[in-house]
Computed example of a mutant assay.
Amino acid sequence: MQDILQVGAVTSTHGLAGEVKVFPTTDDPKRFKKLKQVLLDTGKGMRELEVMQVKFFKNLVILKFRGCDKIEDVMAFKGKNLYVTREHAVKLKKNEYFIADLIGMDVCLEDGSHLGMLEEVLQTGANDVYEVRLEDGREVLIPAIRQCILEVDVEAGRMTVHLLEGLLE
């Protein structure tokens, strides 16, 4: 499990008063309202920033940070990713998982045999789809629905699935 989770990427500055536009990488951008602090990956380390104001514009989040009062203060933030520590991440409901915790999981069939490794989570709108790389290099797409995902053990890094008829063909 990762200790930090990505919540967004700074796309550009916004105005002259030190605000930035952020493309959210969370499934619910409204979660930014609850954020008090974020970590900016400067490329040379993490910089902690206190969130002072949150606004929404189209598909972007506009953030204002304490001590960043002019455009020059945030110019270097462009193209950088924003993270939160696990303790500051939103609390998940039952059967919800952070994508970062799912990537790299061993995926097994319900009979215990190894199927492959979860490589990607595709967010389709109706439900997520898990892209699993098989031992022979092929991939299978498994819908993240209760009929298919039988068990997820984040601590063990293992997922047990039931393949619907036709998924491996």
Rank of each mutant, 00 (worst) to 15 (best):
M117T: 15
E135Q: 14
G125D: 06
D128P: 10
F98R: 03
Y97D: 00
C108W: 06
R133M: 12
E131K: 12
Y97M: 05
C108H: 13
V129P: 00
L122W: 02
E131A: 12
I103S: 01
L134D: 06
Y130T: 01
S113Y: 04
V121L: 05
F98K: 02
E110W: 05
L134S: 10
E120P: 01
E131M: 10
I99W: 00
E120G: 02
L109K: 15
Y97R: 02
G116E: 04
A100P: 04
V129R: 05
E119A: 10
I99M: 05
L134V: 08
E135I: 14
L118F: 01
E110R: 08
E131N: 10
C108E: 12
N127Q: 12
L118G: 02
Y130M: 08
L134G: 09
F98L: 10
G125R: 05
D101M: 02
M105K: 06
L102N: 01
I103W: 04
I103H: 03
L109N: 12
V129Q: 04
H114Q: 14
L102D: 00
E110T: 14
D128R: 02
E110C: 08
L115C: 13
N127V: 08
Y130I: 00
V107K: 04
H114D: 13
L134Q: 09
A126C: 05
L122Y: 03
V121N: 02
L118Y: 01
E135D: 15
F98A: 04
G116F: 03
G112E: 08
Y97Q: 02
I103G: 03
L118I: 02
Y97K: 04
D106S: 14
L122T: 10
D111Y: 09
Q123L: 08
D136R: 09
